[in-house]
Simulated scan of single mutants.
Amino acid sequence: MQKGKVLSLEDRIPKIKEHRKRRANRRLIFLLTLFFLLIVCVVYIQSPLSQINKIEVYGNNLVSKNEITKVSSLKKGDNIWKVNKGQASKKIMELPEVKKAGVRLEFPNNIVIDIKEYSPIALIVSDKEFLPVLENGTILKNSTMLADAPLLINFKKGPFLDELAAQLKDIPSEILNAVSEIHYEPKETDKYHIYIFMNDGFEISATITTLSTKMIHYPSIVSQLDPKVKGVINLEVGSFFKAYDLEEEVKSEEEEER
């Protein structure tokens, strides 16, 4: 039986030294890499690359870029890693025209603000001006005209206008585009009462709080009526039609001729 070969201490020392040398080299490489990364971080923090270079705003039509950036408190040259994106978004959403706002970092040092605004939904008649009304009830100060937008008569800023705007938002566009004017005419029994004048000549008596659910049925109601006989469609509680009194119309025309 052949015995295994036993290494002497002199034979083992070179291998131990080589192993320790490799471990020392790996440790040195690790320390040098860490030191290099620290230097890179320090240089980056001190360089313009760590500062906001540009602020881009997308999705805004009603609010200017300058106003949005001013409200956000973000400024060119600020440290990009100190930007509180959530807080900036919250500040921007305090603008009455802004529905949603998102702030994100675009590599390497640009800030992008994504905006979603409330949609203009009607025009309010105020001091002989036509001012756009947003779907949240906000009245814009500029007099930009809207195509096929209903005119709001006798309305003022407040809960009734806010509720009306919320209701108009839920009415299908093909029906809303057929609305010519909406007059606020409160009653003792209904503070939300309105009269709606349609482009097809019909008049609607309704209440603001149930307007969207009632107006959905307008096309089917009109389809059952004689288009030559105009009148008032009452949608306050149920739904019924009352034709205009033709005799009274003829009489009033004769009085005007006299």
Rank of each mutant, 00 (worst) to 15 (best):
K3N: 14
G4Q: 13
G4F: 09
K5H: 13
V6L: 07
V6G: 01
S8Y: 06
L9Q: 12
L9G: 04
E10Q: 12
D11T: 09
D11I: 01
I13K: 10
I13Y: 07
I13G: 01
P14G: 05
I16Q: 10
I16W: 09
K17W: 04
K17C: 01
E18D: 05
E18V: 01
E18G: 01
R20F: 12
R20S: 04
R20W: 10
R23D: 05
A24I: 08
A24Y: 09
A24V: 06
R26W: 13
R26G: 05
R26V: 10
R27F: 11
R27N: 13
L28A: 12
L28F: 13
F30L: 10
L31N: 10
L31G: 06
L32M: 14
L34H: 10
L34W: 15
F35S: 15
F36I: 15
L37N: 09
L37M: 15
L37V: 15
I39E: 05
I39F: 13
I39N: 08
V40I: 15
V42E: 10
V42N: 11
V43D: 03
V43S: 08
Y44A: 11
Y44M: 11
I45A: 12
Q46N: 15
Q46I: 07
Q46P: 01
Q46W: 12
S47A: 13
S47E: 11
P48K: 13
P48E: 15
L49M: 14
S50C: 06
S50G: 07
S50T: 10
S50W: 11
Q51D: 05
I52F: 03
I52Y: 05
I52C: 03
N53R: 13
N53I: 03
N53Y: 15
I55V: 09
E56N: 11
V57Y: 05
V57T: 07
Y58D: 11
N61L: 01
L62W: 06
L62D: 03
V63M: 01
V63H: 03
V63Q: 02
S64G: 08
K65A: 10
N66G: 04
I68F: 03
I68C: 04
I68T: 07
V71L: 06
V71G: 00
V71Q: 10
S72V: 01
S73I: 01
L74M: 04
K76E: 15
K76N: 08
G77L: 02
G77P: 06
D78E: 14
N79R: 11
N79F: 13
I80L: 09
W81A: 03
K82D: 05
K82R: 12
K82P: 00
V83C: 00
V83N: 00
N84E: 13
K85D: 00
K85A: 07
G86T: 08
A88S: 14
A88T: 04
S89A: 14
K90N: 07
K91A: 09
K91R: 15
I92L: 00
I92G: 02
M93G: 00
M93V: 02
M93E: 14
L95G: 03
L95V: 04
L95I: 10
P96S: 05
P96W: 07
P96Q: 09
E97N: 08
V98D: 04
K100G: 00
K100S: 03
K100H: 11
G102M: 02
G102E: 14
R104C: 01
L105Y: 10
L105M: 09
L105G: 03
E106C: 00
E106R: 12
F107I: 12
P108H: 10
P108F: 15
N109A: 05
